[in-house]
Nucleic acid binder design. Structure first.
Lengths: 341, 341
DNA sequence: GCGCGTTACTAAATCGAATTAGCAACCAGG
DNA sequence: CCTGGTTGCTAATTCGATTTAGTAACGCGC
């Protein structure tokens, strides 16, 4: 095990060439004339000596670093891990590294995190949120190409990647319509957030296209918790003409809906169909019956963010438009043709 | 907005001093004589010029980097985010940065990830697993202080931080015993994994201390899924003398148990008490009734890992012992005094 | 046998900091 | 008024790469 600090100079000496030659060979530069025999010799010597490039030296000399920064709340969100994974993969494929910095905890943390990342000579920055919302981007983020993921800034100074909430809401509703439901309830997320407004708009769009008009009471406000799903479902079931299907603003709401339905002596799927939203990995596939839901494309958003960053880093024209990524359905067992009551 | 490449030399020139002086002042070195007036002047100039240290240059010159590496499967695990968060916080407090590399995807990825991290001149390495198990540590990890989190290597060449599964199993059982249960069922995780064996040992220890002997049939094998919880619960309920409480190997099993109990016309908590394990954030607090469970100390393990790494990096004697972190109970509403059937 | 174009490299500068060695100015003590 | 110590710095080297500008050696055509 070599005591690591084998440098290019060491390799050069051992191979009997200059360190310039070593640099050329190890970086696989083809625009320079070095015969294969020499290349081979240098490569062999490098391997034998256990040469390992020093990223700091490389960054310093080339004035460009191999990494991007990712600022996110790691805190409470299993969500974030999807974005991180997607971003990580995209970065890796381009031979880049992802420096992850936390934006939670204390206020002002975000700006500090960005500052620290900039010190590391990052070539680009992704700012990700754990839930779709508007954010204020710290000023210093301007010094480097920057992409927002699962969030956006008020005046669209940065390109952003967000889930297609409207499309998702449409899809969810469409699944129910296609199954024959014509009386569909909806329990919303916390009113006002983009996910809530988007999903509801999508639902209404689907209903409108199907030529269905429903009473306003078919939509009840929730807050994203299972409890609100439980309460909301009770309200819907007590309606004079109760819906045969419920589109729940998220999976946790759906979880509460399951309980309310079961307590009413009805069966989920058979008597009342349910569609969720988010496709939470440790939840949706484990409910009984397994929950049909709409997935949030976290990984895809992370990937798209880094890809966009790559383009920007390579000098592609910056287009501040918002890019939406589709929310695909996950068909499982909680939807059936309308039951009778 | 200054076109960033303000260097120490620029600051030095503007302040009318040498760059050595600037370096001393900005690094707050007190072992060198520079009057406060000069220090102040340099600091002001640095701020005005928007000086930002270049981490690559610093790393290169000082031969020590400001970061640690963290290798983990980001893939499927919301779990990992707890470890990342804890590690991140501990690192941040010591002014260090965390470079996160993925170990999933292709085989051999782990070793490659470590190699890449080493190129970045990391001062230490944390290898974390998403579930408690034995791993093989890539050879190249030897070149730097290394700590294992939520995993361990066969021959204990590295210090490791793992959850106290036995203690957790003991606690879970103790909660039920303290509530008056004397006939307790258990649905295990996949047989053989450390979490399964540890938790079962803890349970048996608690029963033994309470002087309780139970038939072997009170323990049924599961596999960590909600389905296995459903099946396991049915088996237990069909026993001639069915248990009044069930300790489930994890929260998903508990979720399945809830469904089985409800389908039998019994009430969770009231008729049959349930204790889970893992404290999955989007699951346990949302079940009805809210699930009493045992938490896995992911954040604490991450923190402990980085702290240990810090000590090692500062030259503290390396102690390859395994450090266990306690699993605290989360008391909610799924446990009551024994019901009658 | 001279000029020219390749081929196969090398020398040296550079990146932005950290660090070691040392120097000039000043003051105090004898 | 010379010596020695302190104060307040600076010069120069170093870290390990990248990169630009060149150059020695060789073959080839005329």
């Amino acid at each position: 095990m070599p005591q690591h600090s084998v440098t290019m100079a060491d390799v050069a000496k051992a191979a009997g060439v200059s360190r310039t030659a070593v640099s050329f060979v190890l970086n696989q530069r083809t625009d320079v004339n070095i015969p294969d025999a020499t290349r081979e010799r240098i490569n062999v010597v490098a391997r034998e000596l256990g040469y390992r490039p020093n990223a700091a030296a490389r960054t310093l000399a080339s004035k460009k670093s191999a990494w991007f920064g990712l600022v996110t709340e790691i805190a409470t969100s299993p969500f974030a891990s999807g974005v991180i994974k997607g971003a990580q993969q995209a970065a890796w494929q381009d031979g880049r590294f992802l420096l992850i910095a936390p934006s939670d905890d204390e206020p002002g943390m975000e700006s500090l995190a960005v500052e620290k990342l900039l010190e590391q000579q990052i070539g680009g920055l992704v700012i990700a949120a754990s839930w779709h919302r508007e954010i204020t981007v710290p000023e210093n983020a301007m010094s480097v190409p920057c992409v927002l993921v699962n969030c956006f800034d008020a005046d669209q100074r940065f390109p952003s990647i967000v889930p297609d909430e409207v499309g998702g809401g449409y899809t969810a509703t469409d699944i129910l319509l296609k199954s024959g439901h014509t009386n569909i309830g909806h329990i919303t997320l916390t009113p006002g957030i983009p996910a809530q407004t988007g999903r509801e708009i999508g639902m209404k769009k689907a209903l409108a296209e199907a030529g269905i008009t429903q009473p306003a009471s078919n939509i009840v406000a929730g807050d994203g918790t299972a409890d609100s799903g439980f309460q909301g479902t009770r309200e819907l079931l007590e309606l004079p003409d109760p819906p045969t299907a419920i589109f729940c603003g998220n999976d946790r709401i759906a979880m509460g809906a399951y309980d309310a339905i079961k307590e009413s002596g009805l069966r989920v799927g058979t008597d009342i169909s349910i569609v969720g939203f988010d496709d939470q990995e440790i939840l949706a596939p484990h409910l009984r019956p397994r929950l049909t839901t709409i997935a949030l494309p976290f990984e895809e958003m992370g990937t798209a963010g880094v890809s966009l960053l790559n383009q920007m880093a390579e000098g592609a024209p910056i287009d501040n438009r918002q890019i939406t990524i589709g929310c695909p359905p996950r068909i499982r067992s909680s939807v059936a043709v309308p039951g009778r009551r």
